[in-house]
Design a protein around this nucleic acid. Structure first.
Lengths: 239, 239
DNA sequence: CACTCTCCCTAACAGTGTTAGTCGATCCGT
DNA sequence: ACGGATCGACTAACACTGTTAGGGAGAGTG
């Protein structure tokens, strides 16, 4: 269950566990967003003063590391049905949906590459499927990393701060149409393509953009697999 | 030169221009990193107090927006030689190198999707090449977004905080080998693939990972282009 | 001269991460 | 049962942060 990295076990009831601390942080994150996530508020959530947290956690950074893994706690691997491509697609789609479901999750997770136990569980599962699909060991590892970085990067844009327009009362849709308007207004002589493609650039939803990029990436993986199974052997034909 | 979005021109010598402000921010960013980038320090860089900045800029967010575009000021498009694939690859490679060259650039840029003039210039150029290569308008727009998100997301991982280990004296290489050690120590029964692929997972450099993912993505684009030139003969399919 | 407008200032507010030092409670060995 | 250690919380403080309110020097214009 809980991973005790040190040799200290819980003697009595410390009142505050690292686990409780992380879950309090999770609640604050959900309620106030990543900018409102402060040590003092996490402490208050536990009925405790800020300085007490530093007994259980070295830094805010360390708390964020723990929080990062906790965000992956209820992520689920897709069912093992269909070919490798369907499974990988479902993996990415679910990962994206999962991150989108938690407030500011992408901003917390972004760039925090040391994997905690929950992420390790998912990696283990995905690596297994990649190997079964016929990817070489080196390729499987690469693909695993690439997919993770891809989804995280994508969701980060999606969940991002909307720039300064966020302060104004504009929602996402309004920003998109306003951006389209702005593009269309550009001087045609110097920006012919931007003007011509204004709709194509600002029209598609984030969902569309994600699907598009994902399918292209999966296409790339499938050509890799075909080349690989040429060289490799006869290989198991994919289902 | 300077783009005045409002109709206010500089009457006398304001001493502080938005431009000067942004470049001061750029210097502070380079010197102190994104965590050390504060309004007070930017002001001090200009020999001025913090409150004065709010005359020229609404928010720190707005300053970061301007800074984001300024970070793209000296980015260069690749030469127009070779096929579309070489050019796109070179685009991504240069973009990555450019971001890596500026301190914490990825963290500043991350999720700030409203493009400034410098980025627009690059987009215009890339869209032109995509259309010349034979991509449909819709596809060109999608590819443009996908490549940007891909590179940004990737560099963000790369430039990221290294997690809590950063506080310790460990460099990137040490972290990688330590992570490999940690993976190899996992219980084989529950994490067989992670143990088996420990080297494959932690060995490759960021450069390798980037190249790998990039080539897969380009493969995917090339299959799209092949299919597209088949189907695309006659009219526009939808909308 | 008076008036407005530009632009920077001081002062302050509320909040941040983090450290030092303290102090009660609980456990342990004697 | 007592002395001491250790756990686990506390108060106080430091050095910051973004941001606003209001003041006031200086220039341009009537």
């Amino acid at each position: 269950m809980a991973v005790e990295s040190k040799s200290d076990d819980a003697p009595s009831q410390p009142g505050l566990t690292r686990q409780a601390l992380v879950q309090a942080a999770l609640r604050v994150l959900e309620r106030e967003g990543v900018n409102g996530l402060s040590m003092r508020k996490v402490a208050a959530e536990l009925g405790v003063k800020a300085a007490s947290l530093y007994w259980h956690v070295r830094n805010k950074e360390e708390l964020l590391d723990l929080l990062t893994d906790e965000l992956m706690a209820d992520a689920e691997a897709p069912p093992r049905e269909g070919g490798w491509r369907e499974q990988l697609r479902e993996y990415c789609v679910r990962y994206r949906r999962h991150l989108l479901g938690k407030r500011d999750a992408a901003k917390v997770v972004a760039g925090r590459l040391v994997p905690g136990p929950h992420l390790l569980r998912l990696m283990e599962d995905q690596l297994g499927r990649l190997r079964e699909a016929g990817f070489s060991d080196a390729d499987a590892a690469m693909v695993n990393y690439a997919l993770g970085a891809f989804v995280q990067g994508f969701v980060l844009q999606e969940q991002g701060p909307l720039s300064a327009s966020e302060a104004m009362g504009a929602g996402r849709r309004e920003v998109a149409t306003a951006a389209g308007e702005q593009l269309r207004r550009l001087p045609q002589e110097t920006f012919p393509h931007l003007v011509a493609l204004a709709d194509a650039l600002t029209g598609p939803s984030m969902e569309d953009r994600f699907s598009f990029a994902l399918e292209r990436l999966l296409d790339g993986l499938s050509t890799l697999l075909e080349q690989g199974s040429d060289v490799r052997k006869e290989g198991t034909p994919d289902e």
